[in-house]
């Protein structure tokens, strides 16, 4: 996983609550067996006026000119600001893959659904939880001027013009992103403990290991 330090970029804004993972990446693209190439289908139903399928040439599909990411002022945005409860619904990690493949490194919202939030950290996407008031202040600034937002994960700060926000993130998750830690190797270091646990449980509740 790539290491996350700082991001400096304009932000794209979508003022909608409860954006679910079905909307982020519709089901027909879940038939892929790889982790790449989902960017063209991020928010697919909102983005194109015609239906699409895995394997189509999406550049030939009719685009929805009103789709927020087609607004030229959001060109090159690596930060997404969205409404409450972002990423609810299906557990599909493809939602995170699609956001990253499109070019996003950060998503900002007042809240995220649990599974989506978790999936972010397995892939190097930074979800930032801010208070409603803070997001409003941020939006006021980026709406009036094309200011860049600078996010420093090490200091846990977000800077935009003269606004400075310190955001919360738990230490472990921060470390995972900054160091690009592979959880599996970390866990495997505890193999002996896992085996001991299994041996103990095999005596206490042997039926748990039937199968």
């Amino acid at each position: 996983m790539k290491k996350f330090k700082t991001v400096e970029s304009i932000a794209a804004l979508i003022d909608r609550k409860n954006i679910d993972t079905d909307a982020i990446i519709p089901k027909q693209y879940l038939k892929a067996v790889t982790r790449e190439g989902f960017g063209d289908n991020l928010f697919d139903d909102w983005r194109y006026l015609e239906p699409g399928n895995l394997g189509d040439d999406h550049s030939l599909r009719k685009k929805n000119p009103d789709f927020f990411l087609y607004n030229p002022k959001y060109n090159g945005a690596r930060i997404l600001i969205a409404g409450d409860n972002f990423g609810c619904g299906s557990s599909r990690e493809h939602a995170v893959w699609a956001l990253m493949d499109y070019g996003f490194d950060v998503v900002i919202s007042t809240s995220f659904a649990d599974i989506f939030y978790n999936n972010c950290f397995k892939n190097g996407l930074l979800p930032i939880v801010l208070k409603k008031k803070e997001i409003q202040e941020l939006i006021n600034i980026v709406n009036t001027n094309k200011y860049l937002i600078k996010i420093n994960l090490v200091d846990q700060t977000l800077l935009c013009n003269n606004l400075k926000i310190k955001f919360e993130i738990d230490a472990r998750r921060k470390e995972v992103l900054i160091e690009g830690i592979d959880d599996i190797s970390e866990t495997l270091k505890l193999s002996k403990k896992i085996k001991d646990y299994e041996n103990k449980k095999a005596l206490k509740t042997p039926w748990m290991f039937n199968g």
Partner: peptide, 8 residues
């Protein structure tokens, strides 16, 4: 869980 956790 997500796919990375499936792998985990």
């Amino acid at each position: 869980i997500g796919t990375s956790e499936v792998e985990h």
